[in-house]
Amino acid sequence: MSDTETASADEAEISASLTRYLHDKLKVEVAPDDDLFATGLANSMFAMELVVHLEQTFGVMIEGQDLKLDNFRSARSMAGLVTRLRS
């Protein structure tokens, strides 16, 4: 596998892990692209739980410009953020 393929495989795995986490927390099925805030599934309190979850689960630090709601809109956008911070 090329590097990009490995990265996207990782990213897909992270995204899958996050949809499981969201399902567990929100008690509804969540698709990777569902907008958590637009659908009202998540609020500003839950957003910070997501930050803490990502940092603790994937060993990243989310700081400065990355600390904005847009990065946490969906499982896919969070997986993208984690992958970028890890590389």
Binding site: S44, A47, M48, V51, L67
Partner: peptide
């Protein structure tokens, strides 16, 4: 520190 980050997160 956690809450300042939270406040920053939601602008």
């Amino acid at each position: 520190a956690h809450q300042v980050r939270h406040a920053g997160l939601v602008a």
